[in-house]
Computed example of a mutant assay.
Amino acid sequence: MAPERRADLSVTNPSWPSTPAEAIAVQEELRGLVDPSDTGEPPRYVAGLDVAYDEDRLAAAVVVLDLETLDEVERAVVHGETTFPYVPGLFAFREVPALLAALEQLGTTPELLVCDGHGLAHPRRFGLACHLGVLTRIPAIGAAKTTFVGSHGELAQERGATAELVDGGEVVGAAVRTQDGVKPVYVSVGHRVSLQTAIDHVLRLTPRYRLPETTRLADRACREGLLDG
């Protein structure tokens, strides 16, 4: 049974940019607000977020799980259209408005956001996980399938092995082996979570598969939502 707690996201709604130059200016302005340390209590309710596309149509999904059991608590899916061009490094500006709308539909406020994308592992150190974390003030992490920036050394084959992801001499995340012998997941800080805690959360969310359960369920929900819409 879902807990009876209404969402109160206190989302900041800045004027949304319409050009790449405006978007980069927003990233430069907001990145100083990122807190890469652990704040607040350990989370109980964890949300996976993802967006599926069909040309200009999109469906954004948020699926909330109980971190203790990994059971689904609630989900929300919203439909819309893209309003920002596809530009590498500015993908958040296509996805954030719809994801915020989905978050606002929830009756349960998640205490951790797990984004199918990057946080600090971004050219301007302000990827999707940072953007959503700063705007919602909810702790957030990135758990991506591939790297965007940076490189890492040799990674052992067993589950739980990690290697620092380094870009320009700066540690921006970690490669994390979530299952024996499978490709790693690339974990980075979004907001109000340390890198080690982000890694711990990702390992907790991957008991059987390479990707976190939050990501797997949100991916399925947004794809199904796109078909239904």
Results as ranks from 00 to 15, higher is better:
residue 2 A to S: 15
residue 3 P to W: 09
residue 4 E to H: 10
residue 8 D to P: 06
residue 12 T to W: 07
residue 13 N to M: 05
residue 13 N to R: 10
residue 16 W to L: 02
residue 19 T to I: 06
residue 22 E to A: 15
residue 25 A to F: 10
residue 28 E to G: 06
residue 30 L to R: 12
residue 31 R to Q: 06
residue 33 L to R: 15
residue 33 L to N: 01
residue 34 V to P: 03
residue 39 T to M: 14
residue 43 P to A: 03
residue 45 Y to I: 03
residue 46 V to W: 04
residue 47 A to V: 03
residue 49 L to D: 01
residue 56 D to M: 01
residue 60 A to V: 13
residue 64 V to T: 02
residue 65 L to M: 02
residue 68 E to M: 01
residue 72 E to K: 13
residue 72 E to I: 09
residue 77 V to C: 13
residue 82 T to D: 04
residue 83 T to I: 06
residue 84 F to T: 00
residue 85 P to E: 03
residue 85 P to D: 04
residue 87 V to G: 02
residue 94 R to K: 10
residue 97 P to W: 06
residue 100 L to H: 11
residue 100 L to F: 09
residue 102 A to E: 11
residue 105 Q to T: 13
residue 113 L to C: 07
residue 114 V to E: 10
residue 115 C to K: 11
residue 118 H to Y: 05
residue 121 A to S: 14
residue 122 H to S: 05
residue 123 P to L: 04
residue 124 R to K: 06
residue 127 G to M: 03
residue 127 G to K: 00
residue 128 L to W: 04
residue 129 A to Q: 00
residue 129 A to S: 03
residue 131 H to K: 04
residue 132 L to W: 12
residue 132 L to A: 05
residue 134 V to K: 03
residue 136 T to V: 08
residue 138 I to Y: 02
residue 139 P to D: 09
residue 139 P to A: 02
residue 140 A to I: 09
residue 143 A to Y: 07
residue 146 T to L: 09
residue 146 T to C: 09
residue 148 F to H: 10
residue 151 S to F: 08
residue 153 G to S: 14
residue 153 G to D: 14
residue 154 E to F: 07
residue 154 E to A: 15
residue 154 E to N: 10
residue 155 L to W: 08
residue 157 Q to I: 13
residue 158 E to C: 12
residue 159 R to L: 07
residue 161 A to T: 05
residue 162 T to Q: 05
residue 163 A to Q: 06
residue 164 E to F: 00
residue 164 E to R: 07
residue 167 D to Q: 12
residue 171 V to Q: 09
residue 173 G to H: 03
residue 176 V to G: 03
residue 176 V to H: 05
residue 177 R to H: 12
residue 177 R to Q: 12
residue 179 Q to T: 05
residue 182 V to M: 08
residue 183 K to V: 06
residue 183 K to G: 09
residue 184 P to M: 09
residue 184 P to H: 10
residue 189 V to H: 04
residue 189 V to W: 04
residue 190 G to C: 00
residue 193 V to A: 06
residue 194 S to G: 11
residue 196 Q to E: 14
residue 199 I to F: 00
residue 199 I to L: 00
residue 200 D to R: 12
residue 200 D to Q: 11
residue 200 D to T: 13
residue 202 V to L: 05
residue 203 L to V: 09
residue 204 R to T: 15
residue 206 T to Y: 04
residue 210 R to P: 00
residue 212 P to Q: 15
residue 215 T to G: 13
residue 216 R to D: 12
residue 217 L to W: 11
residue 222 C to Q: 02
residue 223 R to W: 07
residue 224 E to D: 13
residue 225 G to H: 15
residue 229 G to S: 08
